[in-house]
Write a protein that binds this DNA or RNA. Structure first.
Lengths: 156, 156
DNA sequence: TTATTATTGAAAACGGTTATCATTTTCATT
DNA sequence: AATGAAAATGATAACCGTTTTCAATAATAA
């Protein structure tokens, strides 16, 4: 199934050998808007093809993360979650994270103002602290609607 | 040594029983500007008083974190670090994190503009996503001066 | 001082992730 | 298409930060 995915030609050839597990992981992540954990990815893929191993999921995620094709988010419980990175600039977004159920909402609204301030701040911080800034993250923590209706706030 | 610390009267009485380990952890965190891990706190305190256990460090950190006296940051490697929270509003700050050596730099400059935008964004996001926002975090990732001079960028 | 009950420390368990290593697969070269 | 060297894989064990368990200890109210 060559050329099936828009992202394939962008990624193939920059990733070592093109193997079934690597394609499967990229395919799965590219199709979902969820922020999947390694275990969740393993469960999904192992269901279809029991020959795939959890170790390879981790290795593949490491690889494509270090190459910048996905984005790794470390949750407050120490578990990592992953999301596909498109090549569109509009892909950039931040997160609302529910501290009770762990749900993650992406938002990319208000980007212009935010981006402007971020850039300005980056410049200033770079100079002042002689820090070479490569990336940033903005996260809001709180309760999603469902959890707010049910619950007492959890820890943070 | 009662009343020795400014923070003591703020905290004592909201923390269950006032025990030696709890005072020691609070004391240590209040004296440093570093972002210590549980292990580092354990090493420091166990050195002076070998009767203190790592378990208690974790439990104490959990307790005072959930009471809001310290702030817990989960690093990208999954390890948590903790910093004391003063009662001053000026305490609020964000982080520059070196992805190579793990060094954390606090910054609180440019807070006015940032805070303004954050508040506005919070309001909009709260409404749009019906999300009750309790906290936020802004982090910049990159290389500190020392690491930039030496190294090839690491993963992120 | 005593009784009650929270807190503690040691050890074992836990959960996500990483290292080990023998086997399998890819792919450039025939 | 067949070969072979190197890369990638999967099962297992190890790792490491954190949490649970449980009997012993210490803090507070009476």
């Amino acid at each position: 199934m060559p050329g099936q995915h828009k992202w394939r030609k962008r990624i193939e050839g920059h990733i070592g050998r093109w193997t079934a597990p690597r394609e499967a992981v990229l395919d799965l992540l590219s199709r979902t808007s969820e922020h999947l954990s390694a275990k969740e990815i393993y469960a999904a893929l192992h269901g279809k093809d029991p020959s795939i191993g959890l170790t390879t999921i981790y290795r593949t995620l490491d690889l494509i993360n270090s190459l910048g094709f996905i984005h790794k988010i470390v949750m407050r419980d120490g578990q990592a979650r992953y999301e596909f990175r498109t090549d569109k600039a509009s892909d950039h977004h931040h997160h609302l994270i529910c501290t009770r159920c762990g749900r993650i909402i992406d938002y990319s609204e208000f980007e212009k103002e935010e981006l402007e301030l971020i850039k300005k701040t980056e410049n200033r911080l770079s100079k002042k602290y002689k820090f070479y800034i490569l990336d940033h993250s903005i996260e809001f923590f709180g309760l999603c609607e469902e959890c707010r209706l049910e619950a007492k706030p959890s820890d943070s």
